[in-house]
Amino acid sequence: MEYEKLVRGDVELWKRKLMKRSSLLNRTAKKAQTKMNGLIPEKANSVITESIKKMVQGALFGSEYLTKTKAVRAATLEELDKEVKEKLNFYKKAAAVEGAGTGGAGILLGLADFPLLLSIKMKYLFEVAALYGYDTKQYEERLFILYVFQLAFSSDQTRMETMDKIDHWETYKEDAEEIDWRVFQQEYRDYLDLVKLLQLVPGIGAIVGAYANYNLMDQLGETALNAYRLRWFNERENGQKQEKQSGL
């Protein structure tokens, strides 16, 4: 119980951190990116959105069959957290190796980093979902994974909206529709633009690629850990409320 109290406090701190406004530099960069996106013809935007959608769906499909972890929740939250963190360490190293390899191999392989890193991230999220005892073959669980991903890599407004959905998932999932793929791809693309451009620069691409991928994976790991912790607490609290109501 003591561990759960500590984790509950960590989750609340994490939520407050996510709700804070980004720095002035980040907000300025986002405005510039939004303006640039507005200059892209609608037809091109549609093609980009559909391409990212297919890429993500492919990563989701592949992750389902590559995930070896069975959907069985650990006995305690402490045991569960330990397993999730061990998984993250493995995937951070894998992402760093992938980033160094593609970043140091020139522009053509550098461009291949996007789908490769995306697959690593999705595979990790499938593993985390399974560890928490959720069946990733279910539509609502795949949708939750996408929202966790979006929460990790989005700007202020989208991050707040996504946080609200995750925090109230038991209610939201009842009428949940397909994720907005236009928003999904633009937020993710804008978030990665600068660092991925640096990864294509000869001489520093390998270093930038390894460092960037390691940190991006670490950020996703923190988001996934706390999002599923939050869901764990919310589900237990809802269960306790239902027990009290049925006992009246």
Results as ranks from 00 to 15, higher is better:
residue 106 G to Q: 08
residue 26 N to I: 04
residue 233 F to H: 09
residue 62 G to I: 04
residue 159 R to H: 06
residue 10 D to T: 08
residue 209 G to H: 11
residue 114 F to S: 02
residue 199 Q to G: 14
residue 147 Y to D: 04
residue 22 S to T: 02
residue 86 E to L: 10
residue 232 W to V: 01
residue 10 D to Y: 14
residue 93 K to N: 10
residue 3 Y to N: 11
residue 15 K to T: 05
residue 50 E to F: 13
residue 128 V to N: 00
residue 191 Y to S: 05
residue 154 S to F: 13
residue 239 G to L: 06
residue 202 P to I: 01
residue 84 V to T: 05
residue 157 Q to P: 13
residue 51 S to N: 04
residue 97 V to E: 09
residue 215 N to G: 12
residue 122 M to N: 04
residue 200 L to G: 12
residue 129 A to C: 04
residue 200 L to D: 14
residue 92 K to Y: 13
residue 207 I to E: 12
residue 188 Y to S: 04
residue 150 Q to K: 08
residue 28 T to V: 03
residue 193 D to W: 14
residue 181 W to T: 02
residue 111 L to G: 15
residue 2 E to I: 09
residue 54 K to Y: 07
residue 65 Y to V: 10
residue 110 G to F: 02
residue 93 K to M: 10
residue 44 A to K: 03
residue 66 L to P: 10
residue 67 T to Y: 12
residue 153 F to Y: 14
residue 66 L to D: 05
residue 233 F to R: 09
residue 44 A to E: 05
residue 118 L to V: 01
residue 223 T to V: 06
residue 16 R to T: 03
residue 110 G to Y: 00
residue 240 Q to G: 00
residue 186 Q to F: 13
residue 193 D to A: 13
residue 224 A to K: 08
residue 131 L to I: 07
residue 192 L to T: 02
residue 25 L to Q: 07
residue 214 Y to M: 03
residue 181 W to C: 02
residue 159 R to M: 07
residue 131 L to T: 05
residue 112 A to R: 11
residue 176 A to N: 01
residue 229 R to Y: 13
residue 206 A to E: 09
residue 78 E to T: 01
residue 151 L to K: 15
residue 112 A to K: 08
residue 33 Q to N: 07
residue 155 S to L: 08
residue 132 Y to F: 15
residue 16 R to Q: 09
residue 182 R to K: 12
residue 17 K to T: 03
residue 203 G to K: 13
residue 105 A to F: 03
residue 202 P to N: 02
residue 213 N to T: 03
residue 37 N to Y: 11
residue 229 R to T: 02
residue 138 Q to Y: 03
residue 216 L to K: 14
residue 141 E to L: 00
residue 151 L to N: 12
residue 14 W to H: 12
residue 218 D to P: 00
residue 173 K to P: 12
residue 237 E to N: 13
residue 201 V to E: 11
residue 237 E to S: 14
residue 34 T to P: 00
residue 7 V to E: 08
residue 85 K to G: 00
residue 76 T to L: 12
residue 33 Q to C: 09
residue 242 Q to P: 00
residue 66 L to H: 13
residue 175 D to R: 04
residue 25 L to V: 07
residue 72 V to S: 14
residue 223 T to A: 06
residue 68 K to F: 15
residue 82 K to L: 15
residue 200 L to K: 15
residue 58 G to F: 05
residue 54 K to V: 03
residue 97 V to H: 12
residue 113 D to T: 02
residue 80 L to H: 07
residue 118 L to G: 09
residue 210 A to W: 06
residue 113 D to Y: 00
residue 135 D to F: 08
residue 107 I to W: 10
residue 134 Y to K: 11
residue 132 Y to W: 12
residue 220 L to Y: 15
residue 209 G to K: 06
residue 8 R to Q: 09
residue 222 E to A: 08
residue 201 V to L: 11
residue 60 L to T: 01
residue 112 A to S: 09
residue 186 Q to R: 04
residue 242 Q to F: 00
residue 49 T to V: 02
residue 47 V to G: 00
residue 134 Y to F: 14
residue 80 L to F: 06
residue 17 K to E: 04
residue 89 N to I: 04
residue 94 A to N: 10
residue 163 M to L: 15
residue 94 A to W: 10
residue 216 L to E: 08
residue 15 K to A: 11
residue 54 K to I: 07
residue 237 E to L: 07
residue 8 R to C: 08
residue 102 T to E: 11
residue 73 R to H: 08
residue 125 L to A: 01
residue 66 L to W: 14
residue 149 F to V: 02
residue 56 V to C: 09
residue 112 A to L: 10
residue 154 S to E: 03
residue 38 G to Q: 06
residue 128 V to Y: 15
residue 52 I to E: 03
residue 240 Q to W: 10
residue 65 Y to K: 15
